[in-house]
Each structure stands twice: as C-alpha cells, then as structure tokens.
Design a protein around this nucleic acid. Structure first.
Lengths: 126, 126
DNA sequence: TTGAACGTTTACGTTAACGTAAAGCAGGCG
DNA sequence: CGCCTGCTTTACGTTAACGTAAACGTTCAA
C-alpha cells in the first residue's frame, strides 16, 4: 500500500531545512541507518519519520540521546518484562517532564500577554 | 510590602539545584549583576526572579542569549518607538514558537499514550 | 589559633552538536 | 573530453555552557 518513497540525503536536508552534515551526524550517533546504493545513502519513509522525531525532540529541548531513548520505545525489540517496566517508567518520567514544560509555556504565554500590553501602553503614552 | 530578602550565592544554588559556577557564569554573560558586599555577591529578590526566568527558559530549550532577550523585555529601558516595535515583533515570534512547541508536546503526549498502551498489551500477552 | 566552611578570582578542560575544508568518486551534458 | 553537480569520507575547528582545579581571603566555633 504505497509510500515506498526513496529520499536522497539532500532531499531530506531540504525538506527539514538542515544540512547534510547534520543528517550524517545523526547517523554517526546511531540514530539513523539508511540503506546504501553503493556508497550513496538512500532513505525510506521510516527513516524520514525518525528524522522528524529527532528534530521535534530537539525543538522540545531534548538532547540527541534523550530523543534516541524516546524513539527506541517504538522499536519492536522489547522482549522481556524488565525491559517493559523500564519503558513504562521512562514514559512516566517523560510525561511528567512534558507537563512541567506545558506549565512553563503557559506561564510564559501569560507574561507575553502582559509584556505586549505594556508595550502597547507605552505606545499610547505620548 | 516586604520582600527585601538577601540571598548568598549558595542559597540560590541550593534552591534551584545548580552550582555556584553556573550562577557566576550567568553573571559573566551579563544576565545577573548582584550587589557586592566587598567581594561577596549578595542577591535580592529581583535577582532571584531573574535566575528563575533563566532556568525556565533553559527548560524550554532556549539558549542563554534567547532568555536574555526575553528578560530584557521586562526591563524599563525601552525609550523609543523603534525599540518598542522591535519588542512587539519579538513577542510575536516568541509566541509563535511557543505555540509550535505546545503542538509538539501534544503530539508527543498522544504518542506516549499509545506507547504505554502498547507496553501494557505486551504485558498481558503471556 | 587553627581549621572547617563559606566566599573569591583565574584559567584551563570538557562535551554536544554540528561547521568547514580537503580530497575524491560517479554520472550527465555540451 | 572536460566540467558541473551531487554524493562520499576523513579530520580538524568551533561554540555554548558549564566543570574542575589551584590558590587565596574571611569568619567563626572548638
């Protein structure tokens, strides 16, 4: 059912507005392992999604290794109970972090409201 | 109206769970300039709030200089229209960033729900 | 009075996340 | 054929945000 797209490294670089160096660096760090046609890297849809997740993690302030942990949760290689419990624990902690972050964002948004109002006010005082 | 508290550098370090080096580094970067009693730094409530803002910015994935920009918006030194317009522009852009970030968080929360469900499922399959 | 417990400065070290430059191979085109 | 475009590798450089160590000055309780 479709979506057997192939992407070159610069296709992805263009789409996500990053450099090819960045993509290769993510591969160096073991976060991507594209198929090779000879020397040339060929990326499929799964690779593309992974890259997207990495970049979203980055926007959320996660380090690469933190993002890797998150992404590894979706890999179907969890085989024993101990692993699964560790994963559930990670999920729980991550969720707490996100909620704290949500709170931070709400606070900052309120303050942006105030700051904006203050600017407007200063604008009318002449 | 009180709140003329004084804090030592390690008071703040303890409260926010960071090192004194970190606090001094923020001063080096021009984000804090505490009162001095001789050589010794003495921080007041305003300094404490500033530090809190810096750390919140950090949790939100902002660099120090980005946080500085945000904090400077609250300093009452904006004197001309050009400045104010620039500030309003910054506020607008920051708000867009925050909304994108909110979206990212929501997505990630949904995925955490799914991941958790998947784990639970694997847990029941025995 | 001495020795912890706090503070200070100066200065070099470290890590993550790339940037950048050099040198080279593969394919298409005028 | 020569050149351009796009890919590759290797490898050293860079910046932010501190860590860490050395050497020194207070203060205060035993």
């Amino acid at each position: 059912m479709a979506s057997h797209h192939q992407y070159s490294i610069s296709d992805l670089a263009r789409e996500f507005d990053i450099t090819t160096r960045t993509i290769r660096y993510y591969e160096e760090s073991g976060m991507l392992c594209p198929y090779r046609d000879g020397q040339t890297r060929l990326y499929n849809e799964a690779d593309r999604v992974k890259l997207k997740l990495i970049l979203r993690g980055k926007r959320l302030g996660f380090s690469l290794s933190e993002s890797r942990e998150l992404i590894e949760m979706y890999d179907p290689d969890s085989d024993n109970r101990h692993q699964i419990n560790a994963l559930l624990d990670k999920i729980h902690k991550r969720r707490e972090q996100l909620e704290a972050q949500l709170h931070d964002i709400q606070l900052m948004q309120e303050e942006l409201d105030e700051a904006e109002a203050k600017c407007m006010e200063a604008f009318n005082d002449d």
